[in-house]
Simulated assay, not measured.
Amino acid sequence: MTSSLLASRRDAERTDVFERRLRRYHPRFRGAVYTLAMRHSRIADLAASFPALLFALAVPRPAFDPAPALACVIDGLGLAEVAAAADLPLWLRRLPPEAFAGPIARLPDSEFFRRQIANHLPRSPKLAPIWLQVVADVASLAHEPAALWIARELVREPRGVTPARLRLICLWSWFSTQRATFGRELITQPWTPDMRMGTALAAADDWRVGIALHVSLGREVIADMWLRAGHVAGYDFLPLNSVSAIAEEADAMRNCLKTYGYNVAHNRSRLWSVRRNGERVATLRVGCGPRDPFPSIVELEGAGNTEAPRELWWAAQQWLQTHDLLQINTGQRRWGTAPLDRATWLSVWRPYWIAKRRIPDWLTIAPSRSALQAL
């Protein structure tokens, strides 16, 4: 009688523990997990020994048949064998039930990845599902080293990682490793695994600005610069009439000139370099005001956007007045109507499409300013 009561109590305790474990799964999938666990005691044991495996078998990803792996569980095979049959990394065993908010995507499982990822697992059950999804996305869109890096950064400073920016980060980090590509040539600061997120975002944004400049202006020289090169009061006014000239000026003068490709393409302004004795002293932007049909000096700044001296402004005004402003065609394009350079767009992204064997709907084969801006 006593032994029967004890056995009954132990069964009740085991049931209670089991129920508590199941309640930790996402409410949306809890029913599927419970239904599967009830099929066999060995399947139910996975709730304690390998929560990720139980979830992956109850909520399989598309095109995955869990039946062979379930048979392995019921036959009493080891967890490593069952995980292999389920195409599930064994390192997921250390994640709590709270980590699974949808079918588990394919994840890296190389020996190096397994050793390293153990150092960056999330301690917070609340962070775990975000962490798992981000690691899977970065592994798919970029590469294993980037997935390890984002795992570390997300655990180190969760608020510093913005999921909406990950596509840009992934593209930039992927191209950072592809030396024989045009996309890599446009990277000023490549990705490295010791970077912090803030530095990475700034470098990726700079890369995107460079791409936007190239696809906005193409590879041809800007034929109509409105004005002519000139020399006034010891200053040389030289045209920035190509993507390379604009990029070099931006880097040398530490300014945001590379962001003006869109502006120039829509015939809103022209860019010039001011030099003295062969040295860059200022960057000049000529444009037209809303109600002014004639070009005027919109910006004139020294290195790092410092204020240009008064005598340089005078020289620039004198240079401008040497032109017949009435003959300059300053007809502006309506914003968004200037075509992007298709050859440049394809040259940048083709290696990525080929390597990943797909063209994502967010990185279309047709040049798109909105797609580039949305990264």
Results as ranks from 00 to 15, higher is better:
residue 33 V to N: 01
residue 11 D to I: 14
residue 373 Q to N: 12
residue 21 R to C: 01
residue 234 G to H: 05
residue 168 L to T: 04
residue 202 A to P: 01
residue 165 R to S: 09
residue 339 P to E: 13
residue 375 L to Q: 11
residue 145 P to W: 02
residue 104 I to D: 01
residue 198 G to F: 03
residue 48 A to H: 09
residue 314 W to H: 14
residue 274 V to L: 09
residue 196 R to Y: 04
residue 221 V to K: 15
residue 337 T to R: 08
residue 352 Y to R: 02
residue 70 L to R: 07
residue 58 A to D: 02
residue 117 I to W: 03
residue 115 R to D: 15
residue 238 L to N: 10
residue 225 M to Q: 11
residue 327 Q to P: 00
residue 355 A to I: 03
residue 127 L to I: 09
residue 129 P to C: 10
residue 375 L to D: 05
residue 218 G to E: 09
residue 344 T to L: 06
residue 146 A to H: 03
residue 304 G to A: 11
residue 306 T to A: 09
residue 288 C to A: 09
residue 196 R to I: 05
residue 358 R to T: 12
residue 285 R to G: 07
residue 312 L to N: 04
residue 185 E to H: 10
residue 66 P to F: 03
residue 238 L to K: 08
residue 108 P to D: 11
residue 262 Y to F: 11
residue 171 L to V: 01
residue 102 G to L: 05
residue 1 M to I: 08
residue 131 W to L: 06
residue 253 M to P: 02
residue 252 A to D: 10
residue 237 F to Q: 00
residue 270 R to Q: 09
residue 180 A to H: 13
residue 293 P to C: 08
residue 290 P to Q: 14
residue 158 P to D: 13
residue 39 R to L: 12
residue 2 T to H: 09
residue 296 S to D: 15
residue 52 A to Y: 03
residue 108 P to H: 07
residue 57 L to W: 01
residue 212 A to L: 11
residue 130 I to D: 09
residue 205 D to H: 05
residue 320 L to R: 03
residue 210 G to Q: 08
residue 134 V to N: 02
residue 325 L to A: 04
residue 333 R to A: 13
residue 12 A to T: 06
residue 189 Q to C: 02
residue 164 A to C: 02
residue 348 V to D: 03
residue 6 L to G: 04
residue 277 N to I: 00
residue 332 Q to R: 15
residue 193 P to Y: 04
residue 167 R to S: 10
residue 76 G to A: 13
residue 18 F to L: 15
residue 369 R to K: 10
residue 33 V to P: 00
residue 4 S to V: 13
residue 294 F to Y: 15
residue 42 R to S: 11
residue 367 P to E: 12
residue 106 R to M: 12
residue 110 S to R: 03
residue 87 D to R: 04
residue 303 A to S: 10
residue 108 P to N: 13
residue 131 W to S: 07
residue 52 A to V: 11
residue 191 W to H: 11
residue 238 L to A: 12
residue 330 T to S: 09
residue 169 I to D: 03
residue 64 F to P: 01
residue 279 E to D: 14
residue 41 S to H: 07
residue 103 P to C: 07
residue 74 I to W: 02
residue 173 S to C: 06
residue 279 E to T: 08
residue 370 S to P: 00
residue 17 V to A: 12
residue 139 A to S: 15
residue 78 G to D: 15
residue 338 A to Y: 08
residue 162 T to I: 11
residue 94 R to C: 10
residue 123 R to A: 14
residue 270 R to A: 02
residue 222 I to S: 00
residue 347 S to E: 14
residue 128 A to P: 09
residue 7 A to R: 14
residue 143 H to A: 14
residue 257 L to C: 01
residue 68 P to V: 06
residue 249 E to P: 00
